[in-house]
Amino acid sequence: MENKDLMRTIQVKFPRLSKGQKLIAEYILKHYDKAAFMTAAKLGVSVGVSESTVVRFANELGFTGYPKLQKALQEMIKNKLTTVQRIELSNDYISQENALKGVLKSDMENIRATLEKISYKTFDSVVNSLFGAKKIYIIGLRSSSALAEFLGFYLNLILDNVQVVAYGVSDIFEQMLNISEDDVVIGIGFPRYAIRTIEVLSFAQSRGAKVVAITDSLLSPLASKADFTLIAQSNMASFVDSLVAPLSVINALIIAVGLREKDKISNTFTNLEEIWQEYGVYSLKDKENKFI
């Protein structure tokens, strides 16, 4: 079922629903943003019906279970939530007392879902494309900028032809002025998607460059501009984006590239260790366990 048709489906089926199911339908139509992050049990309590009634309601709409209905609601709203709305939602399901456990469990679920969704074949194709690229551009704006910088830092130690594109003295498009079909652009973006990242991928596409998207869904606007899409789940009903699963995918990408360049990495880090020691980049301990 298309997400855009979900609310219409509820309205059409409403007259044929049972009394309890109508209460659920009315709640979702009015408070779909909150219902999207409620368990079947919690939704039942909020409406005043049993958990089994909620499950039957999902089945009545054509879903195989409540989780499928919940997923459809989340897909429908995740790009529309403002930061204020995210704060309100996080207050509903994560309290100050259970914040640590709630967030860690959510991140664990994101990694588990990513492991199931990501295409190993696509992952290998992305690695191959990086080795065939004349130059690699990486763009991730807003909250994704940390991911872009992390990926760029490590890839540049291995490949030497990596540029992280970001806001600065020159415009983003000026930084990519000489992009060609020999290059690869990696775009990183999660809800709410940064418009400029999408525009950059379109620009790269128009120049014939190979485009890689690291995003949360094949329905993402980044995916529509990409030759290869790596899916990493980032669901978090909060004002803070969950970037644990995307970072894990990026780690895997760095390691996969590094494994093909073992000798080069060994030489690079041997040289770096000498530089770090000479200039005291990292703290060291002497034999008496004192920092030097």
Rank of each mutant, 00 (worst) to 15 (best):
M1K: 08
E2N: 12
E2Q: 08
L6V: 09
Q11A: 15
K13Y: 01
K13A: 06
F14C: 00
K30T: 15
K30W: 05
D33N: 13
D33I: 14
F37C: 04
A40G: 12
V49H: 00
V49D: 02
S50F: 05
E51A: 10
E51H: 08
V55Y: 07
V55S: 12
F57Q: 04
G65M: 02
L69W: 03
L69D: 04
K71S: 11
A72G: 02
L73P: 01
L73I: 01
E75Q: 10
T83W: 02
T83A: 06
V84K: 15
Q85D: 13
S90G: 06
N91T: 12
A99H: 08
A99G: 01
K101G: 01
K105T: 13
S106Q: 15
M108H: 10
M108L: 13
I111S: 01
I111D: 00
R112V: 12
T114S: 11
L115F: 04
S119M: 03
S119K: 06
K121P: 00
K121E: 15
K121M: 03
T122M: 03
D124F: 06
S125A: 14
F131T: 03
F131Q: 06
F131A: 06
F131H: 11
G132R: 12
A133L: 08
I136V: 14
S144G: 03
L151W: 01
G152W: 08
L157T: 04
L157C: 09
L159D: 06
D160C: 04
V162G: 04
Q163W: 05
V164P: 09
V169Q: 10
S170A: 09
S170H: 12
I179G: 05
S180H: 02
G187Q: 05
I188H: 01
I188Y: 00
G189T: 10
I195T: 14
E199K: 11
V200M: 10
V200I: 15
S202E: 15
F203N: 04
F203S: 05
R207H: 14
K210M: 10
P221Q: 06
A223Q: 01
A223G: 03
K225R: 15
A226M: 07
L230R: 03
A232N: 06
M236T: 00
A237W: 07
F239I: 07
P246T: 07
L247R: 13
S248Q: 07
G258I: 07
L259Q: 14
I265V: 09
T268C: 08
L272I: 10
L272R: 10
L272G: 00
E274D: 09
I275E: 13
W276R: 12
W276H: 11
Q277N: 14
Y279I: 09
Y282A: 08
Y282D: 07
K287S: 14
F291L: 14
